[in-house]
Design a protein around this nucleic acid. Sequence first.
DNA 1: CACTGCTGTTACCGCAAGTAACATACCTCC
DNA 2: GGAGGTATGTTACTTGCGGTAACAGCAGTG
Lengths: 216, 216
Amino acid sequence: MDTTHRTTTDQQKPADQRRRELLEAADRVVLRDGPQASMNAIAAEAGITKPILYRHFGDKGGLYRALATRHTDALLAALRAALDAPADRRRRVESTLDTYLASIEAMPQVYRFLMHPAEEPHQSEQGFDVGRHSAPLLRRMGEELGQVIAERIDLGPGGEAQARIWGHGIVGMMHAAGDWWLGERPCSRQELVHALADVLWGRLAQAQDRPDGPGF
Amino acid sequence: MDTTHRTTTDQQKPADQRRRELLEAADRVVLRDGPQASMNAIAAEAGITKPILYRHFGDKGGLYRALATRHTDALLAALRAALDAPADRRRRVESTLDTYLASIEAMPQVYRFLMHPAEEPHQSEQGFDVGRHSAPLLRRMGEELGQVIAERIDLGPGGEAQARIWGHGIVGMMHAAGDWWLGERPCSRQELVHALADVLWGRLAQAQDRPDGPGF
DNA sequence: CACTGCTGTTACCGCAAGTAACATACCTCC
DNA sequence: GGAGGTATGTTACTTGCGGTAACAGCAGTG
């Protein structure tokens, strides 16, 4: 036996390469047809047939997870870079927001796919699994931002919990505003970035009520 | 002829009633099986067969849209009430956040369904239709909040645009934080509400850097 | 040579969306 | 009272997708 050794030396390289090729083909199809791309279409694009896809990725969810992980990793790397740039806090926040928005603006199809992954019907009785629908990308971004906040900002006792909440909340704000902006394009990217940073800087709390209204 | 008159007097009432019955049956199934409930299952629950559902709602997307509209309207009404309560701004923000979180906490299945509606493949060539995946509920909440902010708070020139951005952003923050919280339950609802209101009140901007880190 | 493990295929199953085509009751108008 | 339109309901079908046998060729190894 010792198949492990042999496979790692002889077969693993071509297998991994094949897997990458399949992922790239899947990428092309998903970018063209959207997340509802069929396994048949992906297999055809790769020049093969369905069962091979299933041998490599298990099921459709597996393939989509592999695809999503690639893109998510790339986006997270870009965001980390913006978050680590040497500048004051406001600039860094704006730069991170802008990096995110520029990414989704440049590749809306990828973005759409990442936010809407796989939908495995999967009737495994996991009871209340609320939250699975939200893309893993959002969770990962939220966790990372929460960690960054907890590491760098002094929030006193209970600060880690607060930081995680803020991480998820701020990421959600970025996501929802970006999603809406990408669909309607009501303003420039700069304006959007500025407005979002403003709300994080407390302008909602500081602004005056309108003279005639009851205030917000 | 004059079928219009007849239908409005004789047929419309039973037709509407039937439609409501069908929607309630669909509701039960969706709440039990999740958004992937099949049309057959819904028809069976209603005691009829598939084609009737299609005559009433067109396609699965139509049924799901009708269902979503009902729940969305209910949630929006609750939020409007919280937003209109007589209290200072901070209290009102907290009360609105709490209303939302209490709702999704009380009916996670409904929430899950609303955030993940129907997935109509719909290959109509609408080009970049990014953003459709995000539930209409989020858009409606964002628009309404933006309007409320624009009405009640004086943001100077360009304030309406800013208010809309804030509306969608804040709703997104609420949604993402709530989604994460509902899945992991890392803290009490009160704590979550407080932390989210805090970030809107600029605590992220005001907090001190940790002594050893480069700050956020 | 037989054996193992990988690649690939065709052909099938099950299931869900959606659609005829047909049957039946009611109500209206002549 | 009979003709016709309209809503109600049915069974039976098509299409398409996810997923799975079952089988076939082709390497390297004892």
